[in-house]
Nucleic acid binder design. Structure first.
Length: 390
RNA sequence: CGGGGCGUAGCGCAGUCUGGUAGCGCAUCUGCUUUGGGAGCAGGGGGUCGGAAGUUCGAAUCUUCUCGCCCCGACCA
């Protein structure tokens, strides 16, 4: 991507409490539309999509099938499970033109049960493991910290259907371990804790937390109090939904038995904030982000230090052609200071700076994290490829 | 839901107490000079002060109502 073709509205000043919200707004990742509602601008959308892909891959590798449930659900499904009343004001209720009642889903247990129910399944179809990554809405009392506690958020939610508690419980453990892999891949240092099943209900649940300034729970660690932020929550639901919604199969004794269900959530949009929160750096009041190479919005940032130099333009353009799909090429005719400021917020792990003076020695500067090296032009590909392979 | 606060140009703010029809920084536009960490100079454009009603000769400023937003608490899979 060329800077001149990319909508990246960087702001110098934003008024926000949390660092992640500040940086996400500043760097042009998101924009506030209303309280608790954020638009994802091109940069932010790349990041959330990368994370979505990682989460999706891991869910598939655990044995889930990806599907997609609409954001609007008919109210009657939620009346069947008796959560329509229980959810209270957090649930957004809307009517269509025929005055039928709908809700904007805060979760999707009910429609997912309905999906399986409609399929008229038998014992031999089990287990069934489904997930979707979809926008959810909860009308929070007090949205805060940008996309950390917002009203419309992007959530990955998995649902499992088994014949017995034993097999459901076994799968629960598979997901428990799968979650650890997801957070490992995202370089987030999570810990788990047993939790109340609360509104969702069921037999047991575990939460996945990361220590964070913007956490909303308080926990004790090494005798000290820390704030922690919940990123995931898994539930062994038993027959909490399958009994009231009448989802059952005929077992080998020719008896009708309710399916045993599990549900597994990960806050994808919240993950972005958690990651910004853990990858930012601050030097002399200048904030920068350092994205790990696996999910950086752009792996390579090509910085043309002088867009008026024919030689600089030629080499920059050539490098851009070579790494087009993974790079951001700052081709603008602006001061180098502004390009570095943009670069700091973009957070690419590999930065190639084409300086006129270095170019005279047939070299460019390459920065990886906080280290810099002068690399001969003919060595660039080798140098870069070596880092990309790792 | 209780307490506090804010709403003035795209963004960040001053002006409100003590009424006299708006100002600063950044951004933006034009020109010239610049380009090794958010360039400099000169010139220009953009708001009628969240909305409504009221008081007044006159309201960003005072009064009332209303909408939106934020912070603390409570709440939160």
């Amino acid at each position: 991507m060329k800077a001149s073709n990319f909508f990246l509205p960087i702001k110098k000043e934003v008024n926000e409490v949390s660092i992640s919200a500040k940086l996400m707004l500043k760097s042009g990742m998101i924009q506030k539309l209303a309280s608790g509602l954020y638009s994802w601008l091109p940069l932010g959308y790349k990041i959330i999509s990368n994370i979505e892909n990682i989460v999706s891959e891991e869910f598939e590798s655990m044995g889930f099938n990806r599907m997609c449930i609409p954001t609007l659900h008919p109210a009657h499904l939620w009346q069947e499970s008796e959560r329509y009343e229980a959810y209270g004001k957090e649930m957004l209720r809307v009517n269509d033109r025929k005055n039928n009642e709908f809700i904007y889903g805060p979760s999707a247990e009910e429609p997912c049960v309905d999906m399986v129910r409609q399929a008229n399944i038998g014992k031999s179809d089990l287990p069934i493991n489904l997930f979707n990554i979809q926008w959810k809405f909860r009308d929070e009392l007090r949205p805060r910290f940008g996309v950390v506690r917002c009203r419309e958020f992007f959530m990955c939610d998995g649902y499992s259907f088994h014949e017995t508690i034993e097999s459901s419980s076994e799968f629960y453990d598979t997901v428990f371990n799968g979650y650890k892999r997801i957070f490992d891949r995202l370089n987030l240092n999570v810990f788990t804790k047993e939790a109340e099943t609360g509104e969702v209900g069921g037999l047991k649940s575990h939460e996945f937390h990361v220590l964070s300034e913007i956490g909303e729970d308080e926990i004790e660690r090494d005798g000290k109090k820390h704030k922690s932020l919940e990123l995931g929550h898994i539930f062994l639901l038993g027959d909490r939904y399958t009994v009231p919604m009448d989802l059952k199969i005929t077992n080998s004794d020719n008896k009708q038995t309710p399916l045993i269900m599990g549900c597994y959530g990960v806050g994808v949009s919240r993950l972005v904030a958690a990651m910004v929160e853990s990858y930012y750096e601050c030097k002399d009041e200048n904030y920068s982000i350092n994205w790990p190479i696996d999910f950086a919005p752009f792996k390579i940032n090509i910085i043309n230090a002088n867009a008026k130099s024919l030689e600089c333009n030629q080499l920059s353009g050539k490098l851009y052609e070579q790494y087009k799909n993974i790079s951001f090429y700052d081709d603008r005719n602006i001061s180098i200071g502004q390009k570095f400021a943009t670069s700091d917020l973009l957070g690419s792990p590999i930065k190639i700076i084409i300086w006129p003076k270095e170019l005279k020695n047939e070299s460019v500067e390459i920065r990886i994290g906080n280290s810099k090296e002068i690399v001969k032009i003919e060595q660039i590909s080798k140098f870069i490829d070596n880092i990309l392979v790792k």
